[in-house]
Amino acid sequence: MLNNYLFMDEIKVKVKDLSLYYGASQALKKISMEIPEKKVTAFIGPSGCGKSTFLRTLNRMNDLIDNVTIEGEVIIDNTNIYDKNIDVVNLRKKVGMIFQKSNPFAKSVYDNIAFGPRINGIKQKSVLDEIVERSLRQAAIWDEIKDRLFNSALGLSGGQQQRLCIARTLAVNPEIILMDEPASALDPISTSKIEELIQELKKEYTIIIVTHNMQQAARTSDLTAFFYMGDLVEMNKTEIIFSNPAKKQTEDYISGRFG
């Protein structure tokens, strides 16, 4: 099924026969796909289908879990990120991640955003100031919290915290942003702000989003991949997946017959 819908786009991420095992049980079964640059790609599927696990293979977050084995290749910009001599730290700077539960540090708004630049050795205050403002503006939250930069980030609302986390990720200049159900814990207004933000961000970044919410996938994404029981069932342009899917499983899931 590789991949006539992509013919016009630059490929950013190319996955070849990726399998993942927790101990002896296989959670991902020979996944292959191509993800285009500066588009939004959505992963959908029922709970436990492997979509979040797959997302976390793209910045090697699964490395943190004991007893995980991975086979296959993930090629980002012509480099297999599972090669032995890959520096995981540099990979994660390039491939940022937003989590389901917003996870700001128990520090000020400013220190949250400056965290990434600081661990990369940027100390000059004027440079940090500039990065903090630019990141917060990009995440569409500057106007709301510019007077509270030195208050604790934990005092922000849930939706603001999530946009803060997005700003924090933008501050390290990633090229790809992974989002693991970024709005599932948010109210509808905060959710729509995140979705608008995704549309803005895709102009500069490659975005890959896992979502439970099919309207969200339909609204925000250019491509949609449907996962089921560790398999990639089908991937295509979002409007095709939602109007005329090739596989019956996809149609059943999208029309709400299971999942």
Binding site: G96, F99, N103, G116
Partner: peptide, 13 residues
């Protein structure tokens, strides 16, 4: 664990 993940995902060692 989310705090550790947040930090590692930003490229911290």
């Amino acid at each position: 664990r989310e705090m550790r993940e947040a930090s590692l995902a930003l490229g911290a060692t």
